[in-house]
Amino acid sequence: MMPDSPPTPRHVFVYGTLRAGGSNDIARFSPAPQRIADGVIAGTLYDLGAYPGAVLGGEGRVQGEIYRITPALEAQLDVLEEVRSDDCGEYIKREVEVRVAGAALCCLVYEIHPDRIAGRSAIASGDWFRRD
C-alpha cells in the first residue's frame, strides 16, 4: 500500500480585505499561505462598506493577489466568507483561470452573492485599496 500523498495545493485569488495589509490579511491565518503573485480577473468590484464583493465576468477587471493554500486554510476562508453548500451564503466559491507569468493557474475566488450588491456602487478601478 502506498503512503498517503499530501493533498494537491490549491490556489486562491483574494481581492479585498484578505489582501496583504487588509483588515483580514490572509497571512494571519494558519497554516500560513504562500503568496504566488499579483493578478487580475474579469469582473466588477462593488463597495459593500467594510469590504468589497466581486461579480465575475464582463469587461471590468478586479485586482488581487494569488496564494497557495492548504485544505485547512480553505475551510477557514469558507467560514469567513459565509459559503453555504446551497449557494445562498454571502459569497459563492468559484474557480477561475488567472494568467501568471504566461501560464494559466486555476484559483478559487469568492464571488459575492448577487442579492448583496443591490444599490451598491461599483469600484471603477477594480482595486479595493484604490476605491476613491
Rank of each mutant, 00 (worst) to 15 (best):
L77I: 12
R68V: 13
V96L: 02
L77N: 09
G43K: 04
P71W: 04
I92H: 04
R94H: 06
I66E: 12
E111L: 01
A42Q: 06
A101V: 14
G102Q: 05
V40H: 03
I92Y: 04
C106A: 15
L56P: 08
L80Q: 13
R61F: 07
G43F: 05
R94Y: 02
E82F: 09
G39P: 06
A101M: 13
G39M: 03
V79S: 11
L108A: 13
C107H: 03
E111Y: 00
A75D: 12
E59C: 07
L105Q: 15
V79E: 15
R94C: 07
G60P: 10
G89Q: 02
A101P: 02
L80S: 11
G49H: 06
D86T: 11
E95L: 07
R84P: 04
C88L: 14
E74M: 13
V62P: 07
V98D: 12
D86F: 11
Y46T: 11
R35T: 12
G39C: 09
E90I: 03
A54V: 12
G64T: 11
C88E: 15
G53C: 07
S85A: 14
G43C: 00
E82D: 14
Q63P: 01
R35K: 14
Y51W: 11
D78R: 01
D38K: 09
I41F: 06
D47G: 09
G53I: 05
V98H: 11
E95F: 05
L45D: 00
G43S: 07
G102I: 07
D78E: 09
D38P: 00
A54W: 04
V109Q: 05
E74I: 02
G57P: 08
L45W: 00
E81I: 10
R35W: 01
L48R: 09
T70P: 04
L80T: 10
E82W: 06
A54D: 03
